[in-house]
């Protein structure tokens, strides 16, 4: 277990380094931020001073080295736009994104898995087929368009739910959250539903396939031969077997939720890191983009590691170490 952790963490550091180089080199070539930041009628002297202040006159390798040294100390540079530490900007907005992503994931798990199991058990009925049609639709509908339709329907036409923002937040352990106020929940519903749609469809498909596969297995027949009720066979025997792959895949997909939050946050003006990075790409706010990418990649690595560990806890047959 320890050896596994050490190996995984050192691999992760390597990945992060590679990513930092790729991101830095890539972002280095985005247009010139100076043109956006200073007035068009600035004198050449003013221009040169701005370049020097931002450190853009140094060679690329030096810039990377400075960037890396600072990054290790938690300094990813100041935003050109907000003139605040980029890392701080991202971290400030992280709770909003996490709240959205976690809510969406919970929706996917608690709606998708039961529906998928139902579709697997009753695969030959109207209900089973309707669930599968819904999941095909959920897979096909582009997230952003569904978000727009939600706004048209629930905000503009029906006026039931607000179309943007986080609503009233309260502090939970020093972090502002929406889900503890009624107003906040109202603001959370639409974006979370929007973000959850794709993963719900995925959960439906995975659990349906899992149920159908497991119902063919000998252990189910043996459980029937023991005289167990269908409820117990499905609810415990089959459920536990399908939960392992479903939870693993969904866990891996959690990173995808964070990435896709970019779209949902843009549509619903949700003040998370995704919206910040889209705005920053628009104005070429280099440090913020780099900080966002590095933070996201770090989160991905942590999530994948956690999923591996959870997987080994859930599945008695897997021992960490021989795995991978």
């Amino acid at each position: 277990m320890l050896a596994f952790l050490i190996r995984r963490i050192s691999q992760s550091v390597m990945v992060l380094l590679v990513m930092s180089v790729l991101v830095f080199v890539g972002v280095f070539y985005i247009g010139n931020p100076i043109d956006i930041l200073i007035a068009p009628d600035a004198t050449p002297a003013e221009y040169a001073r701005a370049v020097k202040e931002l450190g853009l006159d140094k060679p690329m390798l030096d810039q990377y080295w400075i960037f890396l040294k600072d990054a290790v100390h938690g300094d990813l540079g100041n935003s050109f736009v907000y003139n605040e530490p980029a890392l701080k900007l991202i971290l400030q907005r992280m709770p909003a994104t996490m709240e959205l992503a976690v809510t969406a994931m919970l929706m996917a798990v608690f709606i998708g898995i039961p529906l998928g199991m139902l579709a697997g058990i009753k695969h030959d009925t109207m209900l089973g087929r309707s669930i599968m049609r819904f999941s095909i639709l959920g897979f096909s509908l582009p997230t952003f368009w569904v978000g727009l339709m939600f706004i048209i329907l629930f905000s503009v036409q029906l006026g039931w739910l607000p179309s943007g923002g986080r609503g009233t937040t309260v502090e939970l352990l020093g972090v502002p959250v929406s889900f503890l106020t009624w107003d906040g929940i109202q603001h959370l519903i639409l974006p979370a539903m929007n973000l959850a749609l794709f993963k719900t469809s995925l959960a439906i498909r995975l659990s349906r396939a899992g149920v159908q596969e497991n119902l063919q297995m000998d252990y189910v027949k043996f459980a029937k031969a023991k005289g167990l009720s269908n409820t117990r066979i499905i609810g415990l025997h089959v459920m536990k077997n399908i939960m392992i792959p479903v939870i693993t895949v969904l866990g891996m997909e959690f990173g995808g939720l964070i990435a896709f939050a970019v779209v949902t946050e843009t549509i619903f003006s949700w003040p998370g890191m995704g919206k910040l990075v889209i705005d920053s790409i628009g104005v070429l706010d280099r440090p913020v983009i780099v900080a966002y990418l590095l933070i996201t990649v770090t989160m991905f690595i942590i999530i994948n590691l956690l999923v591996d560990i959870i997987y080994s806890i859930l599945d008695p047959r897997v021992r960490l170490g021989d795995h991978n």
């Binding site: 252990y219 043996f222 459980a223 031969a225 077997n241 008695p316 047959r317």
Partner: peptide, 11 residues
Amino acid sequence: FQDPMMTLNPV
């Protein structure tokens, strides 16, 4: 049943 590898629930 025939195959004891398959008849017991692995998890």
